[in-house]
Design a protein around this nucleic acid. Structure first.
Lengths: 225, 225
DNA sequence: TCGGGCGCTGTTCGCTTGTATAGTGTGCTG
DNA sequence: CAGCACACTATACAAGCGAACAGCGCCCGA
C-alpha cells in the first residue's frame, strides 16, 4: 500500500496532495472543501492556496501526479515485461489500486485527465479483443471498440460502487477476504457465458426496430422491488 | 420517452420534481443548486421550499417518486407476465431507462432508496444465477451473491459512464444507433467467455496468498498511458 | 551575526449557498 | 360581492464557500 517511490514525502505539500486525493475520491470534487483537505492534511487552509494557487489547480496537480505515477509504473512493468519481476508487478498492482478510486471518481467529476486514461484503456482493450477474436470459432458480429468501451465501463463500475458491493457481500472489497471473493467471482463470470449463445443470437435478430434502451440487462436484472 | 402515466402533470410542483430529477442525475446532488432547479423549472427558488420544504426533502421526494413509479411498472410487468404485452414491456423499458441515470447517480450520492434498489437487484440476480448454475457442467467455485453484486455493479457502470462510452464509440448511447451497438456488444460479451476457463482456473489456483487488489482486470485491461 | 527568502498561519473579503419571511395576485366558495 | 385559501414571488439573512492579504518565525547563506 505505502510502497510508493517517494518516501521523504512527508512535506506539507505532499500531505495536502494525498489528503486531496483521498477526499476527492471519497466525496467527489465539489463536495470536498479546501478546509476539509487542510484539516485532513493538518495544515492551514491558506497553505493550499500558497502551494497550489486554487482548488481547481490542486485538482489538476492531483491529476498530473496520478498520471505521472501510473505512467512510471507502466513503464516499469513493460520494461520487465517477461522478466516476471514479482516485486514490480506487486507494487504496480498496489499503485493502480491506490489510484483507482480517484480516477474513477474523477471520470464523473469531468476530469480531462481521467477521460484520457479511459480512452487509452479502451484502446488497449480494443487491441486485446481484436487479437482474441482471431481465436473464436465464429467472427463476432459487433465491433471491438464498443465491446472494449463497455468492458472498461463495467470494470470501473466495481470501484465506483465498491461501497454497495461491500454491503451486499458482507465484507469490504478492499479487505483480503473481500478481494479474494471479487477476483474469484470475476474469473467465473468472464470464463462462463451468462447468456446462451443461441438465445443471444435470437435476441439480436429480434432487434430490427430501434428502441430507446441505454443498457441491456444481462440476465433479467431489472431494478424492480 | 414521455409515455409516463401522469399527463396532466404540467403543474409547477411536477416541473420542479422533473427538473430536479434531471439535474441531480446530470451533475449530482451537491453540485446542483436550488436556483438551478428553479430556473430549469421556470419558477422562483422560493417555490421549491414552499412545495418541498428543503433541498434534502426535495431529493427524498424524487427518490420516493422514482421508487413508486418503478414499483408500479414492475407490478404491471409481473401482472402481464407471460401475456407478453408489448405495450407494457415497451413503456416499462422506457420508464426504467428514464430513471436509470438518476438512480445510479443517487447511489454515489448516498441515497438510501437507491441503495435499497441496488440490494434488491442483487437479490434478484442472485436467485437467477442460482437457477442458472444448475445447468452448468461444473458447479461454480464462487458464491452466487458476490457474482450477482458484481454483475449489478458492472451493469450500472454503463449508465454511470455513459458520457465516456459515447465519446469512445463515437455515437451517443442514448441515440438509437448507439443503443443498438451497446445491446449487440453486451450480448456478445456475455455469451462468449472472455477468459479461457483453464486459464481462469490456473489463475484462481495461484491466488493462495491474499493481495490487496480491489478489482481484477478482465483481459489485461490496465490503465497505462 | 544578520538579513532575506520561504513555509506557514490568522484574519478578512466577496460571493454563493440554503433557508426564512413578508407580501402579492388569483381563483374558488360562501 | 366578500373573503379566503393557496400558488407563487421578491427580498433578506446567516452560514459556509473559495480566495486574498498581511504578517510571523525559522532556517540558511554571506
Amino acid at each position: 500500500m505505502t510502497d510508493g517511490p517517494s518516501f521523504e514525502d512527508l512535506t506539507a505539500r505532499a500531505r495536502i496532495r494525498d489528503a486531496a486525493l483521498r477526499l476527492f475520491a471519497d466525496k467527489g470534487f465539489v463536495a470536498t472543501t479546501v478546509r476539509d483537505i487542510a484539516q485532513a492534511a493538518g495544515v492551514s487552509p491558506a497553505l493550499l492556496r500558497h502551494h497550489y494557487g486554487s482548488k481547481d489547480a490542486l485538482r489538476q496537480a492531483c491529476d498530473d501526479y496520478v498520471l505521472a505515477t501510473l505512467r512510471r509504473v507502466s513503464e516499469q512493468v513493460t520494461a520487465d515485461h517477461q522478466m516476471a519481476n514479482p516485486v514490480v508487478s506487486q507494487s504496480a498492482r498496489g499503485a493502480v489500486s491506490r489510484f483507482q478510486l480517484y480516477v474513477t471518481r474523477a471520470l464523473l467529476d469531468g476530469s480531462a485527465t481521467a477521460a484520457t486514461l479511459f480512452d487509452q484503456s479502451v484502446k488497449v482493450t480494443e487491441l486485446w479483443l481484436a487479437r482474441e477474436d482471431a481465436n473464436r470459432a465464429a467472427a463476432p458480429s459487433t465491433d471491438a471498440r464498443t465491446r472494449a468501451a463497455l468492458i472498461i465501463a463495467m470494470k470501473l463500475g466495481i470501484p465506483l460502487l465498491h461501497e454497495h458491493i461491500s454491503r451486499a457481500i458482507g465484507v469490504g472489497v478492499f479487505e483480503p477476504e473481500g478481494d479474494r471473493r471479487v477476483v474469484r467471482a470475476l474469473l467465473d463470470i468472464f470464463s462462463h457465458p451468462l447468456i446462451d449463445p443461441e438465445l443471444a443470437a435470437a435476441t439480436e435478430a429480434g432487434f430490427a426496430e430501434p428502441v430507446d434502451r441505454p443498457a441491456g440487462s444481462p440476465p433479467r436484472g431489472g431494478s424492480p422491488p
